[in-house]
Computed example of a mutant assay.
Amino acid sequence: MATNTVTDEYPEISLTRRDGLKLAALGIGSVATLGVGVGGLRAVTNGAFSAGSGDPYDLWHDWSTMSGIERVVAAGVLACNPHNTQPWRMVVHGDTIDVHSDPSRRMPLNDASGREHFAGLGCAVENMVIAARAAGSASQVTLFPDGPLSDHVARIALKKDRTGQDRDLAAAIPHRHTNRGPYTSAPVDLSGFTEQSSRVHGASVLWITDEQARQRLGRLYVEATEAITADTAQSTEAFTWFRSSRDSIDKHRDGLTLDGQGLSGLTVFAAKLLPAQSRKDGDDYWVKATREVHTATAAAYGVITVDDVTDRTAQVNGGRLLTRMHLTATTLGLGLHHMNQITERIDRDTTAGHPDVFSARWAALLGRPASTGLLSFRIGHPERTPGLSPRRSLDAVITS
Rank of each mutant, 00 (worst) to 15 (best):
G164S: 08
G192L: 04
D151M: 04
A224H: 05
P182E: 08
V188H: 07
E226A: 06
L158C: 10
P174Y: 14
T232E: 12
I156C: 05
D168G: 15
P187H: 09
S185N: 11
A203C: 02
H201P: 02
K160M: 14
G202E: 02
R199L: 04
P145Y: 15
D210N: 13
Q215V: 08
S204H: 03
I156P: 04
I208Y: 02
A186Y: 08
Y221R: 00
A233F: 09
L158A: 05
A230L: 04
A186W: 11
D168T: 15
S150W: 07
P187T: 12
Y221K: 03
N179P: 07
S197P: 03
A186H: 15
T229C: 13
T178A: 15
R199M: 00
R155C: 02
R219N: 15
R219E: 09
T229Q: 07
L149Q: 13
E223S: 14
T194V: 02
S197E: 09
R199Q: 09
E211H: 09
W207M: 00
A203T: 04
A203N: 02
A224Y: 05
V205R: 01
A213P: 01
T232W: 10
Q215A: 05
R180W: 08
K160Y: 15
K160L: 13
K160C: 14
R199Y: 08
S150H: 08
A230H: 10
L220H: 10
K159A: 14
R180G: 10
R176A: 08
I228W: 06
Q215H: 07
R219F: 05
V205A: 01
T178P: 11
A154W: 06
I156Q: 03
A154M: 02
I156M: 00
R155E: 05
A230W: 03
L220I: 11
Y183Q: 05
S198Y: 00
I173H: 11
D151T: 14
A227H: 13
V188T: 12
S185V: 13
A213D: 09
P145K: 05
I156Y: 06
P187I: 08
R155M: 07
S185H: 09
P174L: 14
Y183C: 02
A171Y: 12
Y221W: 10
R214I: 04
H177R: 12
R219W: 03
S198W: 01
R180F: 12
D166P: 12
I228A: 11
V200N: 01
S198F: 04
R199P: 03
R167V: 15
V222A: 01
S198C: 08
V153Q: 05
E226N: 07
A171D: 13
V153F: 06
G218T: 05
